[in-house]
Amino acid sequence: MTKQIIIRIIFISLLLILGIFLYISGKEHTIFIDNKEITLNDTTYRANSDYKVWIDNKELKVIKKGERGLTKVTGTNHKIMVEKISDKVLTGEKHEMRFRLKMNEKIIIINLPAMINNADEWLIKQIN
């Protein structure tokens, strides 16, 4: 009898773990990418050029100076890569950052100027 109960508990626990895994890895997050000027901790970062953006190796459109781009991702671990564009040509100047998302962080705002300059708060998370 107890053996049956233990097996059942293990089975249900496995299902719960599976459920949690599916939840976390399947949850969609919205990412805004701002190529705009931002002031953090008394330092102002200016948006100087256009950038082409890749999120998780998927190509996005070019985000011009002062523009905001949007994309959606699922799961926790992501990376963003940008390449500077000068005179409508890729310059080869790249920057890359990795970031992790938690379950309740539905909206993320990445600020390109801040990111390029390795500022601390280049990524702002919005809960719900």
Partner: peptide, 19 residues
């Protein structure tokens, strides 16, 4: 529920099955 939680893709379907 899974639409409310924003779970998409195959994970969404599997989670729906689970729940």
């Amino acid at each position: 529920f899974i639409t409310d939680w924003g779970i998409i893709g195959i994970q969404g379907v599997l989670l729906a099955i689970l729940i």
